[in-house]
C-alpha cells in the first residue's frame, strides 16, 4: 500500500478551483481522490455502482463548496474525507447529522503557503504513522472510519500523533477569536 509521495500541492490545486474554477486543477484532484472515495464507500458497505455514483456526488460537492475550503485549517484529504463521510451518512444511513456552527473566518484570506503546506504535510505524516501501526490496531481505526464500528465499540486510543494537529487548529481559532473581539 505504498503511496506515491509525489509532493503534489493539493491545496494549491483546490484554491485554483476555488478562485478561478480551474477545470484542469479539478481533473487532477478528481483522478487522485475519486477512486479513493469510491474505495472508501465500498469499504463502508456500498455496492460498486452506488459507490461510483456517490463518489461523483462527492467530487461535485467539492467543486460547489470550494469556497469553504481553507487550507490553513484542513488538508484536502481531510476535507474530501468529511464530504465523503457526510455523503455516506446521507446515502447509506439515511440519517441527518448536525454540524457545528460555521465560524466567521472573514473574507477569504490570502492563503499562507507555509500554513497550507503544513496541514498537508501533517496529513501525510499521519498517513505514514497509520501505515506503520501494528496491523490489528490499524484495522481497528480503519473500521471505525469505514463506519464498521458502533459508537460504543469505538475506542479513541489511536496511537497516532494527533497533538500537533490539535495545537495548530487551536492556534488558528485563538487568532480568530482575538480578531473578533
Amino acid at each position: 500500500m505504498a503511496k506515491a509521495e509525489d509532493g503534489t500541492d493539493w491545496a494549491g490545486l483546490l484554491i485554483r478551483v476555488r478562485d478561478s474554477r480551474d477545470r484542469a486543477a479539478f481533473a487532477q484532484i478528481f483522478r487522485h481522490f475519486a477512486p479513493r472515495v469510491k474505495a472508501f464507500l465500498m469499504k463502508s458497505g456500498a455496492g460498486a455502482a452506488l459507490a461510483e455514483e456517490c463518489a461523483q456526488d462527492v467530487m461535485a460537492t467539492l467543486w460547489q463548496k470550494a469556497h469553504l475550503f481553507d487550507p490553513s485549517r484542513a488538508s484536502v484529504s481531510t476535507w474530501v474525507y468529511t464530504i465523503a463521510r457526510n455523503k455516506r451518512i446521507d446515502a447509506l444511513r439515511k440519517d441527518r447529522r448536525a454540524e457545528p456552527e460555521e465560524l466567521d473566518w472573514g473574507p477569504e484570506p490570502e492563503p499562507d503557503q507555509a500554513e497550507a503546506m503544513e496541514a498537508q504535510e501533517e496529513t501525510e505524516r499521519l498517513g505514514r504513522a497509520l501505515a506503520s501501526l501494528p496491523q490489528k490496531q490499524r484495522a481497528l481505526i480503519e473500521r471505525a472510519y469505514y463506519g464498521d464500528l458502533s459508537h460504543s465499540e469505538i475506542a479513541a486510543e489511536t496511537g497516532l500523533p494527533l497533538g500537533t494537529i490539535k495545537s495548530r487548529i487551536r492556534l488558528a481559532l485563538d487568532k480568530l477569536r482575538h480578531h473578533m473581539t
Binding site: 500500500m1 472508501f40 484542513a74 474525507y81 457545528p100 498517513g127
Partner: peptide, 24 residues
C-alpha cells in the same frame, strides 16, 4: 473543535492510504 479537527485528519489519512478502486 480543535480536537475534532484532529480526528477528521485521521479520516483524511485513511482516505489517503486506502487501496483505490478505479472509477469507470
Amino acid at each position: 473543535r480543535a480536537r475534532l479537527g484532529s480526528f477528521d485528519a485521521v479520516g483524511g489519512a485513511v482516505i489517503e492510504e486506502i487501496d483505490e478502486i478505479s472509477m469507470g
